[in-house]
Design a protein around this nucleic acid. Structure first.
Lengths: 200, 200, 200, 200
DNA sequence: GTCTAAGCGAGACGGTACGTCAGGTCTTGCT
DNA sequence: AGCAAGACCTGACGTACCGTCTCGCTTAGAC
């Protein structure tokens, strides 16, 4: 009863979606986003080209879906572990993200690129990818504020932008995202002695 | 000594380069990077398509050149004005940048996207575009450190990444880059009371 | 049994082939073989350029097909009319051929030219165009030999080469192929008093 | 006095013409007429492309010149040797021609092809190549007629067309032109017993 | 000895055509 | 109504030639 009236006609092949997403991820990782054609994905998945068009509007949609299949389920309960400092939690979060990017960075970069060339896709990408991750960090920072690990009038959103911006900037410019980088971000966000007057 | 020996053969049409770059900028602004074909640029410039291929290897090269023609010469003596706080100088720099991006943001976004799809171009883009701007901010921050406006052991490069990352992130996600945003960045970078302990 | 199993997928547009061949013939007749581009044919036929590439490998293949469409079905039952001398039959055949060439001579010349520049095409042209016509003449000459209208040890193939050679030579050199020419060929092939000794 | 007033300016490089023609022949023999570009000839000859345009209007003109340089000087005094039958003389002439074609056949075929695509060139080709060779055969046949080796009312021009037509036809269709073929042509042209009535 | 006219090497230029590729739509018969 | 297959239209790509042009340099005879 849950799904209302099943529409007439042949139902969609249940295995097709999985095969297509798997093929998409495989090819995008191997060759890069731009070098992969829709025909190549269909062929790799053993599926007719039209089947892709039946389910996704654009290549970007499809790749986004494929990446999320794998990616959507990360993220981690322990980010509000009260036994840890917020700095430690942020660092741990970033290490997780960077590990994910070690494998998927090129694909993500391609998605960011695709988002620049298609406003509709940029919205989808923002909603399904950017915003959820942003929320994780702003939540973390809010708790830090509650726990007095960070100043009351700090601009949480701006700090979040610093965090994400820093690694987007690095990612897009080809810098390596390693544990040091994660720690350095966390350190600098939570630094108390930014102003030298604190030392006088 | 100026230009060495002129190579043999008919010299390149001096006006063509200008016309091509102008046409490129015009079309990229009107239609976006991906929607502009080489043929369209050639036609707009009143030039044979082959002439473009004679001078640039890829569309990205050409657009980069065209953008730099206009863009390379901004940037601002007064960033070391000793009568101003570094926070004010940073804010002023960001306002300048954002004004430039108001017109060229779409093109820059397209270039960043193109850089993700072509490693060679990413290097060029980094050298000719990213690094110079980064240097402006790190220089500013170093002087701030010398003037004790910022802590001695702050990570200058990380703060610079925060600055650039913040507005790249906003730019790529479709946020507006206005004067408030510029001020907020500067405020947060130079905040003294980040840690709540400063209030205890 | 007629056409075997129809292959999957959308069938080829049945009208397209006709339109394309008609356009091809029209343009080749108007402008000559070399001056006709594939794009022009496609445009004249109201069809995408790619459609031509889907069906024919080269312009020569296409033109050959187009010419044969019109040309393949001539040729004439009455060439073994026993009430006529072989000389008359040959003359009548040549008149038919020359009438066809009056309209298609330029196209045929272009095909012969194309055959010189492409060995594969020369083979096709020979099989589909040259050999069938040659056979008509050799058959006629064989019957003439059986009917004692021509010497028993005459070299039929050589005489056939004389016939076709004579009008190819004329065609390719721009001479007119009229009824007189047809008659003169037939007369000379069947001449009894070639050697002056026959007059002594 | 012979060559009128020499025009002012730098005289044409005397060696260039030779080098260009040699390069032309070499490349046309190696690659075929259509596959050779003017740029390739210029490059092979070590000469500027414009130099070719200064001296020849089209590629066909150039190739024609190049072939004639080598070819114009054949042909043979002994074709009126009174001690030989005309049949023998014709055979000998054809053997000479076929030997020449063994090396230059492809080039000649290309020229014939080029003549079909350019009326102006066809005229030149006819005057400088076809007619002289035709005259050799018609002269030979006229002498044969005077010597009563051939009937008085034979159509000399038609027989000449048979001779040239036969080997053009063979050449253009890719048949081999060997000594047997030469003999068979001569035999058939001079056959006395064409009509079987001659045997009755 | 300049002057002048032309050829030359080099190579850019406006064109035109090529053959390929990809995207997105459509039309079949089959499931 | 979805699917496999594949033809179709559109339009961009990068390459190859063509014939013309524009440079700076060279080569001569004319003045």
């Amino acid at each position: 009863m849950s799904e209302g009236k099943r529409s007439a006609g042949r139902p969609r092949d249940a295995e097709a979606a999985g095969a297509i997403k798997a093929a998409t991820l495989k090819l995008v990782r191997e060759r890069g986003y731009e070098a992969v054609s829709i025909a190549a994905i269909a062929s790799e998945a053993g599926v007719a080209r039209q089947t892709l068009y039946n389910r996704w509007n654009t290549k970007a949609d499809l790749v986004l879906d494929a990446v999320f299949e794998e990616t959507g389920r990360y993220a981690s309960a322990p980010l509000n572990d009260p036994a840890q400092t917020s700095r430690m939690l942020l660092e741990r979060f970033l290490v997780q993200v960077f590990e994910h990017l070690a494998e998927n960075g090129d694909t993500i970069r391609a998605l960011i690129a695709a988002a620049q060339e298609n406003n509709g896709f940029r919205e989808i990408f923002r909603k399904r990818f950017v915003n959820p991750r942003e929320e994780i960090v702003t939540d973390l920072l809010k708790r830090a504020q509650e726990r007095r690990e960070i100043g009351q009038d700090c601009n949480i959103n701006m700090l979040s932008s610093f965090v994400h911006g820093a690694f987007w900037y690095a990612l897009l410019n080809g810098d390596t995202l390693d544990k040091d980088f994660a720690r350095n971000i966390a350190v600098e966000i939570f630094r108390s002695d930014r102003k030298s007057s604190g030392q006088g």
